[in-house]
């Protein structure tokens, strides 16, 4: 009703035209330091790792390796245990992504207006995000064993294969929902109040206002939160490492990579697993990000 679909800007100038350089050159220069660091510590190591993934390199303290072609990749893609780690990772990501976003959005809806009380509650809700992942995991392992298990006489989810992923996801949700809340609050505060007033005049109900104004205009916040949490979820490592190291059901792809490269003297295989993981992560985050960008509307 209020929002209109964003029209794609039509550029008639070539990418490196003087016009584009004049308009975007300054911005690009600001981005350059971060870009250089990103290239140096992410992109170059990633591409340097590809040749190793085509070898049977054993230990990282050894130089000996034999070229094995795509054998590491074919082995991994047909390996039950590696695929299981993907399944575990996806399960974790799904619960974490939904939980943190739903709770974050719910909190944002309650707390988005500024008041002293709301500001305090927001700070409290955001505080877990400042705790380290390992710290959060260890604290929660005690919450599970000493509080929840004692109160309800149940096993700690971290000691139960069928619940361990959920147990870890709860820790991650607790830690990151405050972050999601802040992004949603920023999104809610940027929606002009006139839209709601106009909708009210038109007789729109609360549900209709949320459906037709709030949610469409919050899409950029969804894009940010969902893409980021998707990436964080897919590369989860600290939680299982800290509190479920021995549970097969908690083994994620990054743990598989870590174990093979550093622990099991199968660095070539581990490198191939790392590359597969990165590619999957890249495809999924790009797809989700694009999907949400298409849904974005302009206020």
């Amino acid at each position: 009703m209020v929002a209109k679909t964003r029209k794609k800007q039509e550029h008639t100038h070539p990418v490196f035209s003087r016009y584009n350089l004049r308009i975007h050159g300054g911005n690009m220069l600001f981005m350059l330091p971060a870009l250089i660091i990103y290239i140096a510590v992410v992109l170059i190591p990633f591409f340097q790792g590809i040749p190793y993934s085509l070898t049977n390199w054993k230990s990282i303290i050894s130089d000996k390796m034999i070229f094995v072609g795509l054998k590491n990749y074919t082995t991994l893609l047909t390996n039950k245990y590696f695929l299981d780690t993907f399944l575990n990772t996806f399960k974790f990501t799904a619960i974490y992504l939904l939980g943190a976003n739903i709770l974050g959005l719910f909190l944002a809806m309650i707390l988005w207006r500024s008041s002293r009380f709301n500001n305090i509650v927001r700070t409290v809700m955001f505080m877990p995000f400042t705790v380290s992942l390992v710290g959060a995991a260890i604290v929660w392992s005690y919450v599970y064993t000493d509080i929840i298990s004692s109160l309800f006489e149940v096993m700690s989810p971290l000691g139960c294969s069928s619940q361990v992923i959920g147990g870890m996801a709860v820790i991650a949700i607790w830690r990151d929902m405050g972050y999601c809340m802040l992004i949603y609050i920023a999104g809610l505060q940027s929606i002009p109040t006139e839209y709601y007033e106009a909708a009210r005049v038109d007789g729109a109900s609360s549900f209709q206002r949320i459906k037709h104004i709030t949610l469409p205009l919050l899409i950029p916040a969804f894009t940010s939160n969902i893409t980021l949490l998707l990436a964080w979820g897919l590369k989860v490592f600290d939680y299982p490492m800290a509190v479920a190291r021995n549970m097969e059901a908690a083994k994620t792809t990054t743990m598989y990579v870590y174990d093979n490269i550093f622990g099991f003297s199968k660095a070539g295989l581990g490198q191939a697993a790392a590359i597969i993981t990165t590619v999957v992560l890249l495809i999924l985050t790009t797809a989700v990000s694009r999907m949400f960008r298409k849904l974005e509307v302009e206020a």
């Binding site: 096993m155 000691g159 021995n246 549970m247 097969e248 622990g263 199968k266």
Partner: peptide
Amino acid sequence: FSSEFTTAWRQSLTSFAESCVS
């Protein structure tokens, strides 16, 4: 046992323990 075999040995024993406990 190498570290990889030790891990596998222990993982299967932990699963067995879990099954017995639960």
